[in-house]
């Protein structure tokens, strides 16, 4: 026992969505906190990008001792080279979605594909069990409608952490000043597989896709005066017990209850 897994967390440069002020990306900071809690001494924090990135100091303030920067240009990163850097770690943590640029959420999937290991996303909690057969990682996964799923996996493994994950982040200015930022190796640029995005200059609302409808003006006027509210069934009659049965039938018919 006592064999702690080694954990790497990859963090992105965060920006406030309205003001553009550099800051730690909330989801990534949570991933870092989970990783530090899991691995202690065997934790390492990486950033792919520029050493001068101002938001990196925020991660130091939130508890990391040092950030290792893999220098790369924006956008075009060779994912295989990144996989080489982190391949010796048992668990690689990432956030769910970056705050800058497209924020596609593709990074953990690409990394897992390059490392040929499974990826589990929307992780809320990570537990590590050591047994004779090896390290077993149990992840609690966020699902909508208040559901949680438990998934077990062997290492190595890429986990994308959900921003709701329970982690306490404490900001300390002294750590922000005392932490170090190192540069390691370099990642060669590779042609990006992402579409080439053309950012529009002016803000506007997205246009909804709608089926073209060939309708005469008369028909359009008619549809405008027909009530849209569908109005459902109204149960007037019977005793309250009958009415309770009506509701139970409805719930069962639409399979909203499981009894």
């Amino acid at each position: 026992m006592g064999d702690v897994p080694s954990v790497a967390a990859l963090v992105s440069a965060g920006r406030h969505p309205l003001t553009g002020v550099p800051r730690a990306c909330r989801g990534d900071a949570v991933a870092m906190a989970l990783g530090r809690a899991l691995a202690g001494e065997k934790f390492a924090l990486f950033h792919i990008g520029s050493v001068d990135e101002p938001s990196l100091r925020d991660y130091l303030a939130y508890g990391a001792d040092k950030v290792e920067v893999i220098p790369a240009n924006k956008g075009d990163v060779d994912i295989n080279a990144v996989a080489d850097v982190v391949k010796n770690f048992d668990i690689v943590l990432t956030g769910t979605r970056a705050e800058v640029a497209a924020g596609s959420g593709m990074f953990p999937y690409m990394l897992a594909h390059a490392m040929a290991c499974p990826v589990v996303t929307n992780a809320l909690d990570i537990r590590v069990d050591q047994s004779d057969t090896g390290t077993n990682v149990v992840i609690s996964q966020f699902l909508p409608k208040g559901q949680r799923r438990s998934i077990a996996s062997a290492t190595p493994l890429v986990i994308a952490v959900h921003p709701f994950a329970a982690a306490t982040l404490k900001y300390a200015h002294s750590r922000r000043v005392s932490g170090t930022i190192n540069v390691i190796g370099s990642v060669s640029a590779a042609p990006a597989r992402q579409p080439s995005w053309a950012v529009e200059a002016a803000p506007r609302r997205p246009v909804r896709l709608k089926a073209a409808e060939k309708q005469a003006g008369h028909a359009r006027l008619l549809s405008a005066i027909v009530s849209e509210a569908k109005g459902g069934v109204v149960a007037f009659e019977g005793t309250t017990v009958d009415k309770a049965q009506v509701v139970l039938n409805y719930l069962r018919e639409h399979r909203l209850v499981d009894f």
Binding site: R15, P17, L18, G20, E99, V100, A101, A102, G103, S104, P195, S196, W197, A198, V199, E200, A201, A202, P203, R204, P206
Partner: peptide, 16 residues
């Protein structure tokens, strides 16, 4: 084309 929200702001980015 398609468009996405860029940097979670109010501008869109387009691609084929």
């Amino acid at each position: 084309h398609i468009a996405i929200v860029w940097s979670s702001g109010n501008r869109l980015a387009c691609a084929p």
